[in-house]
Design a protein around this nucleic acid. Structure first.
Lengths: 113, 113
DNA sequence: TGCAAATACATCAGATTCTTATGTATCTTT
DNA sequence: AAAGATACATAAGAATCTGATGTATTTGCA
C-alpha cells in the first residue's frame, strides 16, 4: 500500500532534514532509496519532488553541498549547515507536536510497540 | 503556536470526514470553530480552504447537504452519505497507518558511525 | 442606539508543492 | 548488446491552500 500523495504533502522537508540530521551526508538518489527502504515502500519520494526541495533548502542556507565523482558519474552530497541543524530540530519538534494533535483530533488508537 | 501551513496540507479532507463521522451533521463555520477549539487553536482551518473542500466532497457524492434558516441567515449542514462513511473510515485508517510510519521514519537513530 | 465583532456563506488571484514526463549520461547485470 | 539501475536535472500541468474580498445577518456591549 502506497499512501495517497496528498497525505505526504508538506512532510518532505521534514523527512529530508531529519535524515540529514542522522546521517552526516547524503545524496539525492540515496535519500529516495533510504526512505523507500525504511517505510517498506509505503513512501516513495519522486525525484521531481526531491531535487527542487533540496535546491530550495540549499538556497535557504540550510544545506551545503559537495560534489564527488564515482568514476565519471557525478554525485552531489548534501549536509546540514549550522542553521540547518537548528531548523531540523525545529521541524521535527513541530511535526511531533502536530502528530500528537492529530492523534487527539482524529481519536486515533496508537500501537504501543 | 500555530502549525506551519504546509504541515496541515492534505489532512483537511480527513479531518472533515472524521468530524462528520462523529457528529451527525455539521455546517462549515461550525467545523472551523470545532477544530480550533479541539486543537487549542493550533490548527486553524480557513474558510477559503474549507468551503471548496466541502463542495468537492459533495460533488464526489461523499456528503449530502441540508439548508436550514436561523432567522434570515442561511446555514448549510453537511452529512456523510453511505459512501462517505466508508471513505471516512478508509481515510482514517490510512492516516493512522501513515502516522505510524512517520513516527518510525523520523525516529531513526544514526546508522552510520 | 449604534457600531464592532461574530456568524455564515461564497469566490478568486496568486503561491506553493507535487506529479508525471522528459532529458542526459554512466554503470552494472544478464 | 540491451535492459535496468544509478544519478543528476528541468518543466508543464494539477492540486491545494493562503489571503483578500464580497455579501448579509445577528449579537454583544458601551
Amino acid at each position: 500500500m502506497i499512501y495517497s500523495s496528498e497525505l505526504i504533502k508538506g512532510t518532505l522537508k521534514t523527512i529530508v532534514l531529519k535524515l540529514l540530521a542522522d546521517n552526516n551526508k547524503m545524496y539525492g538518489y540515496e535519500i529516495t532509496q533510504r526512505v523507500k527502504e525504511l517505510t517498506s515502500e509505503k513512501i516513495q519520494i519522486t525525484e521531481g519532488a526531491l531535487y527542487p526541495t533540496l535546491h530550495a533548502l540549499e538556497n535557504e542556507g540550510l544545506l551545503t553541498t559537495e560534489i564527488e565523482y564515482i568514476g565519471k558519474r557525478v554525485r552531489k552530497y548534501y549536509r546540514l549547515s549550522p542553521s540547518g541543524k537548528t531548523k531540523s530540530q525545529e521541524k521535527l519538534s513541530e511535526f511531533s507536536d502536530f502528530i500528537q494533535t492529530m492523534i487527539f483530533l482524529l481519536d486515533i488508537k496508537t500501537k504501543t510497540a
